[in-house]
Design a protein around this nucleic acid. Structure first.
Length: 565
RNA sequence: CGGGGCGUGGCGCAGUCUGGUAGCGCACUCGGCUGGGGGCCGAGCGGUCGCUGGUUCAAAUCCAGUCGCCCCGACCA
């Protein structure tokens, strides 16, 4: 019997002063987690129960798609990391053993799993395989933050798929899509699967699972029509420009002394910011100088630009603007520029625009893309609230936390680590891989953020540390404790995990702590209730109360519990 | 890595500017009352003032260094 009188659940009236994020404050206050160092967190008994519930859900859905659980070490020899080129990663913890041999603390397990697969899987008959484990990941984060949301050590479920060809990888990926959708549904989260950037690793496709919450580090673009994308890659139709100046036969120079900012030129010439052409001089790694042109009220999205260029680019320095772009910082524009121009699609078809004249204190008006300069068109701007999605619905932006990701790796690891197999014709081929991660603590934190109210946490039924909290009121020795214990046992017999508040504390303290801990259902047993033949039930979410009959309280409570979210 | 802030009983804070007996609330212990929304009375326990060095008759307070933690940004394979 789990009794609060002896359970290690140190609740706090006030959150630690340095806690800002809601989940951080509440997980600490409710006695679920404690900090050991920057980005290093201990899960106390009740917090670990929640964590394990998440784990159990993840495990059951992965097992259901035929994935096989295993376990790989955190401490690993550095050599495979050197071979895949990941050794220089800043976030990778490096350690030496007593002999001076280089090791790492794994931040993920592609190297380890591929190492094994390369040795053990030889034939197309051995494929496909999906392998996974729950393991601590170590990352030397430049900036841990927000409690358990971004830490230097955390438990992740990561699975890896191994297939003979691209079609096989697609199938393994789709299996994970299904499993992940079910996992986040079962966890009771509001979530979105969004297309994501494949990043510097390349790869063949990736999605992120995002849970909207105020402490989220990412931003997702959502629409009522079901559009969902990470702003890193989101694409949308811009709001039309209002008050565009009339078109001209040819660009005409105007004096704009000292007006280097969009806002200043807009005011000086009395045209909307959207009628300006914003020009970003960048230096691409291989292509060299490129002038990127956007609508004046839009922002450049560096990730989309890198994807459009097919390589990374950096902003040009002031001296480079003069030497390479033959222009003047603040007055740079696409008309007459000696370098290649990439223009955002939002300016396609617009006329009567204003652009920098590539001379100090002058702009051009009446500019028309396609006539006055010939750009390469690309979608390189950041979407913003008020844009419309492909189905025509308005887009809004929300902060969200990434709770999972799925990634088509291809042969990124099987090549350097020599993971090959012989196909039906006896030809040696590389294995096609995918990797799929889920952060367990982040699911907890997201659930807390999404469900909390003024009183504290309100867990989704599937993740609560306990299904039901039974509160026994009255002085020690009174009948209510006996009744509460009986109720606890009946709930256990019915398959629910309860916790009993048998502490010698006042009713107010017990209620406050129960609402802080956030179990979905609270049953209160007190003298008055017993005399009236009743037990009070309070649903945590909404805090609605109702009376249950003393005799059938357990049975009624189980029924009530099953209806909860 | 750039910017900002904070380290004083378990938690939240005051005291630092202007050097002179370390304080408050909560928590905790004991006794009593109360017993359906953090209740009341009384008596207690508990602090190397992050650390090191310096200045001074005297340092939580001034100076130098250092460590730790938080927030914003950058970064986030």
């Amino acid at each position: 019997m789990t009794r609060l009188s002896s359970y290690f659940l140190p609740t706090l009236k006030e959150p630690p002063a340095d806690a800002e994020a809601l989940s951080h404050r509440l997980l600490v206050r409710a006695g679920l987690v404690r900090q050991l160092g920057a980005g290093l967190w201990t899960f106390l008994p009740a917090g670990w129960r929640s964590h394990r519930r998440v784990e159990a859900i993840v495990r059951s859905e992965l097992d259901a798609i035929g994935a096989q659980e295993m376990l790989m070490p955190v401490l690993q020899p550095a050599d495979p990391w050197a071979r895949t080129g990941r050794l220089p990663i800043q976030e990778l913890f490096k350690v030496e053993d007593r002999k001076g041999a280089e090791h790492v603390l794994a931040m993920s397990h592609e190297e380890a799993i591929t190492f094994h697969v390369a040795r053990e899987l030889r034939s197309y008959r051995d494929l496909p395989k999906i392998l996974y484990h729950f393991q601590v990941k170590a990352r030397d984060e430049p900036r841990p933050r927000a409690g358990v949301l971004r830490t230097r050590e955390f438990v992740m479920k990561d699975s890896y798929s191994f297939d003979a060809d691209r079609e096989g990888l697609d199938r393994s990926y789709e299996l994970h899509v299904g499993a992940y959708d079910r996992i986040f549904d079962r966890c009771g989260l509001e979530w979105y699967r969004v297309a994501s950037d494949v990043g510097m690793m390349g790869g063949f496709g990736a999605h992120e699972y995002m849970a909207p919450c105020p402490a989220g580090e990412n931003e997702v673009a959502l629409s009522a029509a079901g559009y969902a994308a990470n702003v890193e890659v989101a694409s949308a139709t811009p709001r039309p420009v209002e008050g565009l100046p009339s078109a001209a036969d040819a660009p005409e120079a105007v004096e704009t002394p000292g007006q280097t900012a969009i806002e200043e030129v807009s005011r000086g010439l009395d045209v909307p910011a959207a009628a300006l052409l914003k020009a970003f001089p960048v230096i691409a790694e291989r292509r060299g100088p490129v002038l990127v042109v956007l609508r004046g009220d839009h922002r450049l999205n560096e990730i989309k630009l890198a994807n459009a260029l097919g390589e990374a680019a950096r902003p040009a320095q002031a001296d480079e603007v003069e030497s390479l772009f033959a222009s003047v910082p603040g007055f740079i524009g696409p008309v007459g520029t000696p370098v290649a121009v990439i223009a955002d699609r939002a300016v396609e078809g617009l006329r009567g625009l204003v652009a920098g004249a590539n001379e100090a204190d002058r702009h051009l008006r009446g500019v028309e893309p396609g006539r006055d300069f010939e750009p390469e068109w690309a979608d390189v701007r950041s979407v913003e609230a008020g844009d419309t999605c492909p189905s025509g619905a308005e887009i809004h932006l929300e902060p969200a936390i990434e709770v999972g990701n799925i990634f088509k790796l291809g042969m990124r690891y099987s090549e350097p680590l020599g993971a090959t197999y012989l196909d039906e014709s006896g030809t040696e081929r590389h294995v096609w891989m995918g990797s799929y991660g889920i952060g367990l603590a982040r699911i907890m934190a997201a659930a807390v953020e999404q469900g909390a109210d003024e009183q504290g946490i309100s867990w989704p039924r599937a993740l609560a540390p306990f299904d039901i909290e039974v509160v026994a009121l009255g002085k020690p020795g009174e009948e209510s404790l006996e009744v509460a214990e009986r109720l606890y046992s009946e709930l256990g017999a019915a398959g629910l995990e309860a916790v009993l508040d048998d502490r010698a504390a006042s009713a107010g303290e017990k209620f406050a702590d129960a609402e802080l801990l956030g179990c979905p259902l609270r049953l209160t047993v007190g003298r008055k209730g017993i005399e009236a033949g009743e037990v009070e039930a309070q649903v945590r979410r909404g805090r609605e109360r109702r009376a249950l009959s003393l005799e059938t309280a357990a049975e009624e409570a189980v029924g009530l519990w099953r209806e909860l979210p």
